[in-house]
Write a protein that binds this DNA or RNA. Structure first.
Lengths: 256, 256
DNA sequence: CCTTGGTCGTTTGTCAGACAAACCGCTGGC
DNA sequence: GCCAGCGGTTTGTCTGACAAACGACCAAGG
């Protein structure tokens, strides 16, 4: 075998990474397992050692493995995560993962001029308009999240009618399939709060009920903001988890 | 120049990564900037192309750059993060970063038998004992966080007296300097709650005040739990931020 | 004039082979 | 019994090369 072509558009090293993550997740590569030496392992996977090393580097960064020169590479034991915020899944998926039946009620969609807050976070010019989607998400029929999403009307390519599909499918899926917009990452800010009159009505709880308010901006791979969403989660319905890296190998963020 | 030795123990590719992160953070490599071709850039940095590529791979994973074959590598525009939970900084650092003067009051340290909850999360055997540290952290003299940390007595190498230093320095720093324990990552779970009688007393607020409760377990690089901490944050004192990867390039987690 | 198709240079992705450095276990000398 | 040295193993880095994808340019055809 010589060159190693890709059938789809993905990179070979990324594919190798995913294959390894699967084998770790499935338990085939249990924590404590020592991987074969890199040259041997690369031959086994049918890729070059440098390509394998790219995948290993990535896995090491995420804490799946530990590499030591002269010793080898061993699979790290990691704790099971139930509902981690690191992965930007949709509310629908979160409800599903928690073992409940997700649903949506009371969808309301309007198009209006963006307020200053929206213009700033979505980097919109003066006078721009946004499509706003309000939804109440349910788990086993009980309201658990009220959300208000805003995205620039310009992104909808003049077909805002497509948004009606939101009752059935996830926002992310719809953005990707209908409009070709891929969300690369999101930045979420959250704080506890008490339900005000309006949110209490949507979630069918008393005013003052305990909520977690999450404000999130989703960006594409070029760092351009796509979606601004406000979510009001019922405190007792969810538990959020985050993997925090470092200290030790500190993943610095640009301060500018 | 031929081989490229390291003065300290770090890897050359990691050093290159850090140097590049600094240049991005400082604004020298502004968003939108196109990096030189890899061979040229590697020569400029005095490292081999493969080493540079390891650093670039890492930066791409964290969203700092975008690479496209036939086009080049460009610096991605990223939003400024004020207080992101991704990096596992200490409470002290968080207060400092928010522009306040951090302080500690009412330190209480006891050693007692671990309860079942602690034994399970820290993977301790029956009958193990833990050192428990209770602290009230202040910002500009005002209490903002009450925390209760527990760690196995075995880790202290029979020198629990060293814990007294906690009034002055960060838990992470103390663990590393005094006991040689490096925290690799932590897993935090959080939910909103109202202050009960005890916490309200420590934070000098009325009962029922809005809090964010954070339970975190810190692990070393082998995935062994080191530290269990419960933190009660005053809701209005902090705002938490998380970078959520994907969807699109989904960073899968082991489900087992 | 505009569109369409191909060509070519640029740049990242992958491959191959080699040496250097660090770690581990073993062994011999004291 | 203990420590220093030695060699094998394995990751880290270097060098050089080809393949694949992308963009810009240009020529032919309508």
């Amino acid at each position: 075998m010589r060159r190693n072509p890709r059938s789809d558009g993905a990179r070979l090293s990324s594919l190798a990474r995913e294959r390894l993550v699967e084998r770790i997740a499935s338990g085939e590569l249990a924590p404590g397992t020592k991987l074969p030496p890199e040259p041997e392992f690369a031959a086994e996977l049918g890729i070059a050692r440098s390509t394998l090393r790219e995948a290993l580097r990535s896995l090491e960064e995420d804490g799946f493995i530990t590499r030591t020169r002269g010793v080898g590479t061993v699979v790290t034991s990691r704790t099971r995560l139930t509902n981690n915020l690191d992965v930007n899944f949709s509310v629908t998926e979160a409800i599903w993962a928690a073992g409940h039946e997700p649903g949506t009620e009371a969808v309301r969609i309007v198009t209006r001029a963006a307020d200053e807050h929206e213009r700033q976070l979505l980097r919109l010019p003066e006078g721009a308009s946004v499509a706003v989607i309000e939804r109440t998400r349910t788990a086993d029929g009980r309201p658990v999240v009220f959300s208000r999403d805003a995205l620039s009307s310009d992104l909808l390519l003049g077909r805002p009618d497509q948004l009606r599909g939101l009752a059935a499918e996830s926002t992310y899926e719809l953005l990707e399939r209908r409009y070709g917009l891929t969300v690369h990452h999101g930045i979420a800010t959250f704080r506890p709060m008490k339900a005000d009159r309006e949110v209490a009505r949507h979630l069918r709880v008393t005013r003052g009920a305990l909520l977690l308010y999450v404000r999130q901006v989703d960006y594409d791979e070029n760092g351009l903001p796509l979606l601004l969403s406000h979510e009001y989660h019922l405190a007792e319905a969810f538990e959020f988890t985050v993997v925090r890296r470092g200290p030790g190998r500190r993943a610095a963020s640009p301060s500018q």
